[in-house]
Design a binder for these strands. Structure first.
Lengths: 320, 320
DNA sequence: TTGTACGCGTTATCAA
DNA sequence: TTGATAACGCGTACAA
């Protein structure tokens, strides 16, 4: 029950075992060229003294710092938080130190952070994409980065099923619930995924089933949902699909104020607060936690040189 | 416009300057024993090549990694996010790499993280306290840690003005708005600050002005605010003070449903969403961003050996 | 005021 | 299968 004064070095362990530093190092790095017996002896001592090799020293030998950079757009993004929360434990479990940075949708900051990470000899990066983030920034990180929420060529990407989510909601409203007049409140198309992709999926569905589109596009904010509500409502929809949960929140507030709560609200993305305040909202879960899981897993396997570009789309599902 | 291939070492810089490694090292570490002229020359070259000394190598020499651990309770805590958002830029600016970890209110995880940070030779720690976090865990970090939201002896702490906030709200409701019957929805007293401290302040105010207390205590959640509403409402208050913004959110939902919106809601802690959904809520700002600022500043000055324990309480103020 | 030489903890190369 | 030894980039006695 001795205090594991982590000042032990590989040298001390070597002395304790009666072998040389090199052998201990070999055991640590799983070098097969070491006799079973000696290995066991060394491992035992290592366990006993809770020895961990100095990360700094390893880093200096070019081994990487066991550091993963996680670049989120905003620390208070609920969706990204879910993803991050699910990847942190995975990284910890594998002995990596995740360091979280906030891009605030600025490509310049991303560039800054990436070079910080490079100079720190970080092993890998998980980055949440946003409109304006150029692929070229990540060119140095092709083999050790995972991009979330956008498809980049020659990169491992984890995407949400934007189109599927819209279609899922619309199918539910149109086919199961017999809504004929379905409005849409979204985000301007400069935003490629949340904006353009989802809006286009709405339009496509309308065309396919010969529905008359009734949409308004604005910002990604509560307020935008609230303010755009009246325009879509002017054409008397019986249901409205919202591109995000914050928009759904704004719309719900508007409907509540105007006593229009018979109108069905559908949201892409579900959040605790939306669910609590407006439980009638029909939401589709994009799978943020799964995205985090995949991101961590993929990055780790890339780092173990099981190098293979992947392009994963997380399946979405309706909240029942 | 050359690519700053960060492979430069102190040795290269030395050659470039026509001096020796040691001199460069001395310049970097602000050793006064170096001639003005040589210093300028070296600095110029360093600037020109954007040279940064290898953190790993420095760490190996016992210099610390320029790493700050930030242990939040939950990544999706709005209040902590505000604080973190305001300290990150400060740490970056001083060349520190903040690494954010999530305790999930578990002392065990904190212990784990702290030893991770120690083994990583982190320079300092900012930790958001919670009920159950024992001071002893931080004993090793007395000189290089800042505790937020709880007073620990022999530690630098940044606290919110729990008592002041309650009194500010009550004074506003009682004296400016003439409310006589003011209820309170709070958190159970096991939680020392948000729970006990704020509740006690409410009771004290009531006693001081001879008001009859009307309180209910529960959890820190929307739902708790919603569920406890009826008990406090039973005694017909004209205003209700909520210990947190989430509770206020829950209460507001209840009032909205029961069409009791003439009742004034007051909240300790303001959040964007509360403000958006229920703008009539009277909120007091605890100053999370300021707390982040102070925390970063204090920690940095501690690390520069301007060692001096401080105990800062952030002043709160009413949202107008 | 500056340079030389050594050590930090680790891995890699070579020789045994 | 192992051990001695040279690096890695940096800071710092010590010497000049």
């Amino acid at each position: 029950m001795s205090i594991s004064s982590n000042n032990l070095t590989i040298k001390d362990i070597a002395k304790l075992c009666g072998v040389s530093k090199s052998t201990v190092s070999r055991v640590i790095n799983h070098d097969p060229m070491v006799k079973e017996a000696t290995r066991n002896k060394v491992i035992a001592i290592i366990e006993q003294y809770q020895f961990t090799p100095s990360k700094s020293a390893r880093a200096m030998r070019g081994y990487g710092n066991k550091v993963i950079g996680i670049i989120v757009t905003r620390l208070d993004s609920l969706s990204e938080n879910q993803a991050v929360q699910s990847m942190l434990p995975i990284f910890y479990r594998h002995g990596y130190d995740p360091i979280i940075m906030e891009s605030q949708f600025s490509a310049i900051k991303v560039k800054e952070y990436l070079s910080m990470l490079k100079s720190k000899q970080a092993d890998g990066v998980v980055i949440f994409a946003f409109t304006g983030l150029e692929q070229s920034l990540l060119s140095t990180w092709q083999n050790n980065s995972v991009v979330i929420a956008r498809k980049f060529q020659d990169h491992t990407c984890i995407c949400y099923d934007d189109i599927g989510a819209v279609r899922l909601l619309l199918a539910h409203l149109y086919q199961s619930q017999q809504h004929q007049n379905i409005g849409y409140i979204g985000i301007e198309q400069q935003d490629q995924t949340t904006g353009a992709l989802r809006y286009q999926a709405y339009l496509d569905f309308c065309q396919q089933y010969q529905l008359i589109p009734n949409a308004a596009l604005g910002q990604l904010s509560y307020r935008s949902g609230y303010e755009l509500a009246q325009f879509v409502l002017a054409k008397n929809p019986s249901a409205i699909v919202c591109a995000t949960d914050s928009i759904a929140l704004g719309l719900n507030k508007y409907l509540n104020e105007k006593q229009l709560e018979h109108i069905t609200v559908a949201s892409i993305g579900n959040s605790e607060i939306l669910n609590f305040l407006f439980p009638k909202t029909c939401a589709v879960e994009l799978g943020f936690d799964q995205a985090g899981n995949y991101a961590a897993q993929e990055l780790l396997s890339m780092l173990q040189n099981q190098f293979e570009l992947k392009n994963i789309t997380i399946p979405c599902h309706l909240i029942s």
